[in-house]
Design a protein around this nucleic acid. Structure first.
Lengths: 337, 337
DNA sequence: CTGAAAGCGCTTACAG
DNA sequence: CTGAAAGCGCTTACAG
């Protein structure tokens, strides 16, 4: 663990530093260095536990083998799990990940991007906050490897990896309809985000296409900043106002968590009297409300797909393609259904 | 956002790069550069959005303004929150944080430490996995700034910041005793870790010092690798075997979460029939089990204290002191108690 | 006041 | 086969 330099191992081996560098970077053949010597150098390096100074390597080569991950909030279970899986995944290819939280703040997101840029990260994986569109465009313009996850900007030609919000929501609403529920409410938040719009559109489309559904949209939108701590009361009030509602779709897992509290307050039995469906980021409902039905976001698949794309871009030196990777959400049906 | 170099802004200003560097690093006075010129240079730099290449700065100065944070599992709510608060805190001083997960694997922990070391981080904040003792000692030997959080190695003279496990647990057990509970069970895991030992010792000491308590230790230890998914069944079986138990202390929040499920399965009403106390990392129980009593770990305070210590060490170039910072756990009493 | 030079630790094209 | 040199983008001691 003591810091040992390239030139030190060169002097031990009795060669010049460049020879050591070439051997250690697999260019022994090119330099036509004898196998014996190469072997000897490797053993010495191994013996003293030589690790190149990554800062120097970065400066010289322009590559850092670091990826930047920008998410909304690293303490959110969805992003934390995403980060972890991603980290494991890219490590197989010798990459490291540095994480940053935007807190959904455009300003902070842009600063973080700048910071990563000047630390010469090799690629960017971003769950963009609203308003980061311009920064991401300029990244693209410079042919930097970039993959968006969880959300995206419709007009920007990035590679995007996300759960199939539209299809999954249609599946879930369809399931509720087949169960015989007729007045299905939809509770959402952050309506300006594209992934939320997809979910809401799917709800409306599925109702429109159904013969049995009541032709009416029962939608509650809660502003993000009202979610805590008032979310529960808002949902309760909404359900009291809409007494005929017999099923609820919560468009995020946080809404589901608050909603569940409301429903219990109101004396609804789950899953006996009512069906509740929501997005579940990480099986969180299995633990707390075993009966609830939800759409599971396969975080592992999302992270793996994102890792594959970003590394592909870096190693092939391709520029980002306008590719949509939709990961199917899994409808997990629990309880009496 | 385009990359602009020091020498470019020098040529715009009509001076030599070193002049620009000095101005931007606040050494204009030392060099006796005229205020006018300094001002002009600053404006140009500002205008073109100059940000120094951090990699080059690091290589040259030996400082990266990056701190390494090594935790057990970044997707655990405790560590995720810790990371976030820490990040905000050190940012005020111009530092960034890179996070790494050890997964409680000695090997991985040591590798991560090596990696950070060779990326020249300025300081280390570590929630050490078992077996990282030697690596941490060698960090100390090299006078690297290091602060341990959440746990520590008794023999090693690091600065440690953690919740007062012993005192908090005594408070909680004392509370149960005053409520009139007599046969209090203690459910734990990872018994070899020092913070868990403190909690268990406090349980035993508090019972020993009490006149009303039954002089008997009802302790269940669940191996870490048995926790999921068998934890619930193990706790249920344990409680069925110990029918006289009228209160339970769960020594971690995960145990509490599993335990709650068990208790509900067994038909225990919380908080009416029984008191349950456990460590709560982030008010998680407030959402799911409003009635439960718990010890809240003030993550914010822990993170703030750790940030202050590590930055203090770096900036003063002091070597780590053997300082224990115990943050008091807050007993949050809810429900009918 | 200002410029030229060395050097952080590497990698790689070039010359022998 | 091997060595000497340049250069990545900065900072800072040194000489004028």
């Amino acid at each position: 663990m003591k810091k040992v330099l390239l030139k030190e191992i060169a002097s031990i081996a009795g060669v010049v530093p460049s020879t050591v560098s070439c051997v250690l970077n697999g260019k022994a053949k090119e330099r036509r260095i004898s196998d014996d010597l190469a072997q000897k150098i490797k053993e010495i390096a191994e013996g003293v536990g030589y690790i190149p100074n990554q800062v120097a390597v970065s400066l010289r080569t322009g590559y850092s083998r670091i990826l930047g991950l920008i998410v909304e909030d690293i303490s959110n279970i969805f992003f934390a799990t995403l980060a972890k899986v991603l980290e494991d995944e890219v490590q197989k290819h010798g990459y490291r990940v540095v994480y940053c939280s935007t807190e959904n703040d455009k300003q902070k997101g842009t600063e973080l991007l700048n910071m990563l840029y000047h630390r010469q990260v090799d690629g960017y994986i971003i769950a963009p906050a609203l308003g980061m569109e311009e920064s991401i465009k300029s990244l693209l313009k410079q042919h930097k490897p970039v993959v968006l996850v969880d959300r995206f900007f419709p007009g920007v030609g990035t590679t995007n990896v996300l759960v199939d919000n539209y299809g999954s929501t249609r599946k879930a609403i369809g399931f509720l309809l087949r169960q015989g529920y007729k007045r299905i409410a939809f509770v959402t938040t952050n309506r300006q985000m594209v992934q939320m719009q997809e979910r809401e559109k799917a709800y409306k489309d599925e109702l429109a296409d159904s013969l049995s559904a009541v032709d009416e949209h029962i939608v509650l939108n809660i502003d993000y900043f009202n979610l805590y701590p008032a979310g529960r009361e808002i949902i309760t009030a909404f359900l009291l106002q809409n007494e005929g509602v017999d099923a609820v779709f919560f468009a995020t897992n946080y809404l589901g968590m608050y909603g569940l509290q409301s429903l219990k307050t109101l004396g609804w039995k789950i899953p006996d009297r009512i069906a509740v469906v929501c997005f579940d980021d990480n099986d969180i409902f299995k633990l707390y409300s075993p009966g609830i039905t939800c759409i599971r976001q396969p975080i592992h698949e999302i992270a793996t797909a994102a890792a594959k794309r970003i590394i592909g871009q870096i190693e092939s030196d391709r520029q980002p393609e306008n590719e949509q990777v939709l990961i199917e959400g899994e409808l997990v049906i629990r309880g009496s259904a």
